[in-house]
Structure formats: C-alpha cells, structure tokens
Design a protein around this nucleic acid. Structure first.
Lengths: 180, 180
DNA sequence: GTCTATACGAAGATAGAC
DNA sequence: GTCTATCTTCGTATAGAC
C-alpha cells in the first residue's frame, strides 16, 4: 500500500525520537527503520524534517491520550497504575533504550515551534488526566495530575540512565501513597 | 590565562547541553560560546567530543552536589525549597531555554558510556539528597529523594515546553505538601 | 599551546528521469 | 509515486606549521 509509507515513517520517527532525540532522528535512520522508499520523503513531507517531527509529536500525543481515555471510570489508584504501566512498557520493551519522544523533542530540538507543540501535548495530557482524577474523587486533581506527569517523565529518564527499573517503581509507589 | 580555556569550554558545554542537547553541542558552538581558541580543542580533549561531554557531565553533577551540601542541617521544607530554587534559577535566567544537562545527555546522546555516567550522577544526587532528608527526619528518605529528583527533572521539562513556571511551581507545592 | 588547512562523512534538501 | 544523482552545509577529526 502506498499511503502506508507515511504512517510507517511517522511511527518510526516516534521510536527514534524516544531513543536518540531530535538530531538522532535523521531521514536516513527513519527510512531504514520504516523501510519506506527513499523518494517518498518529500512527497509525504514537503516541508521536510520539521513536518515529520510535528507529525510524530502529534501522533505520540494522541496515543497517550488514548491510553488515558481507556482509564476512564477507574478509581484513582487504577489511573495511576494504568498511566505508569504505559511508561513501564516503553522501558521494558526497549531495554531502557527509549523514553518519551515528546520530552526528547523538548530538550533536543532546535525548533521553537516544535517545543511549543510539545508544550501543547503536555498540557493536553495534564488536562485529560486531571479530568479522570477529578471524576475519581481526587482532591486538587490538576495539581496531582501535573505532579504525576512530571514525576513519571522524570522517573523514565532516571530508569533509562541507571538501566534499572527501581527508581521508576519507587516513584510509582510514592504516587500511589500520595493519592491513596 | 592558558589553562582557563579548558574550564571555559566545559562550562560552555554544560550550558549548550542544557539548551540544545547532545548533538546541538558541537565543537563550533562550544568554541564560539567559550571564546576558546580553535587549536586547543584536541590539546585539552585528545579523545574528542566524548571527553568534553564526560567532563561536562562530571562538573554539572558536582555542581548540584555542592548545592545539596549547602542545604545540610536545614529542615525538610528548606531542603525542598533549596533544591527547587536551583532549577527555578535555571529556568528563569534562561527564559525557559535551558534545563538539566544530565537529562539532556541521557535522552539525546548516542554514547552508551555517557548515559552510564549520567546514571551515576543521578544516583549520587539521590543518595546525597536522601542523606539530608533522613537527617531532617523525613520518613522513607530514599523513596522521597527519588520522587523529588524525578519530579523536579520532569517539572523543568514541562515548564520549558509550556514557557510557563506554573507547572514547576505546582510540583514544588505538592512536594512540600508530601514532605510536610 | 595555538594556528591554518584539510580530510571525510553525514546531514537536509533539490532536480530531473522514469 | 518513487528513483538516482547531486548540492551545500556542517560535523568530527587529523596533519603539520609556528
């Protein structure tokens, strides 16, 4: 299928961003990872790399929102567990070689527009998570949602750097204690 | 002074890492930022970029440990405030263009050795912070220290992406509530 | 200890054939 | 819609003069 190539490239860009950051996500890497045909880069992304990265951030953001949506109606502890399980899966499946692609764009992109877009994604996550926590009866849901996003992002980085799930699990337990 | 050049280059590398990540910290950038003479790169860093980055991570790690040391003897809330003040200063002075250079190396370096070294720095911070918190009478000091490092690192990223100190301050307040 | 010059590869991007 | 070829710029690194 022809239009499959674009989707595969975006998906590969998300993975490569999560592993090696912005500059590590080169066209060559994306093409070899996605098995997409070389001549179709500027067909699908006429504005070049910026457009590819923007698509990747958008899709990565939407993916996490979908994970959050699936947690609707759960009690607070279930929401915490579900959200942390998503990040744990990233760490385990990649053997600590991948993290959050949106965070990677924030700290390693040279494009102000890309950072802005990442900020929008973080805001969307925080807003949706706060809704769920509020429905579950958590006090000050926005404040706890912000803590949860920040702590989980940081915990993923710590686990990656230390090649150890321990700091991630420690943060997970502490978040449960706070919300309990 | 001749031997000043090396120190200036390392200092510039720390700043550039915090702003643009690993690949954004090129020799050209480091040289123009540090005003160091071009011919002295491989004099001071015969092993090239890897050696420069390693020196930057080591110094950045030691700098934060020094900040922690200065908080010795304070009550728990003072330790939280002092640690968060360090990161707040980075965000404010850079107008949200800089974050943590050790985190940046973790997520955007292509060198496994550099990531290992970053992990060692995070461990050292956590250990020292846990000591201080334990002395201040905090229960489960290691677990809270890990949460604090993770949450502060994540909060810095959120504030950068959103160009707003609000998520950072929200996390700061929540950490105080947890420890208080 | 610092300089210039340069080698070599990889990056993003464009042109034009098919 | 995909291909090959090519351009330019930038990155790291080295050689050899001063």
């Amino acid at each position: 299928m022809a239009s499959d190539a674009r989707e595969r490239m975006v998906r590969s860009a998300i993975i490569l961003l999560a592993q090696h950051g912005y500059q590590g996500t080169s066209f060559s890497e994306v093409l070899s990872h996605s098995q997409a045909p070389r001549g179709s880069i500027y067909h699908h992304f006429p504005d070049g790399k910026d457009q590819l990265i923007a698509a990747a951030v958008e899709v990565a953001g939407a993916n996490a929102v979908a994970v959050l949506d699936a947690l609707e109606g759960l009690p607070a502890a279930g929401i915490v567990d579900g959200f942390m399980a998503m990040w744990r899966a990233v760490l385990e499946r990649s053997e600590f070689s991948a993290g959050c692609s949106v965070l990677a764009v924030t700290v390693s992109s040279d494009s102000a527009a890309a950072v802005e877009q990442a900020g929008g994604v973080f805001r969307a996550w925080t807003t949706r998570l706060a809704e769920l926590l509020g429905d579950a009866g958590v006090a000050e849901p926005e404040s706890f949602a912000t803590l949860m996003i920040a702590a989980s992002e940081g915990a993923v980085v710590l686990a990656r750097a230390e090649h150890d799930l321990a700091p991630f699990e420690s943060v997970h337990r502490r978040l449960l204690a706070v919300v309990g």
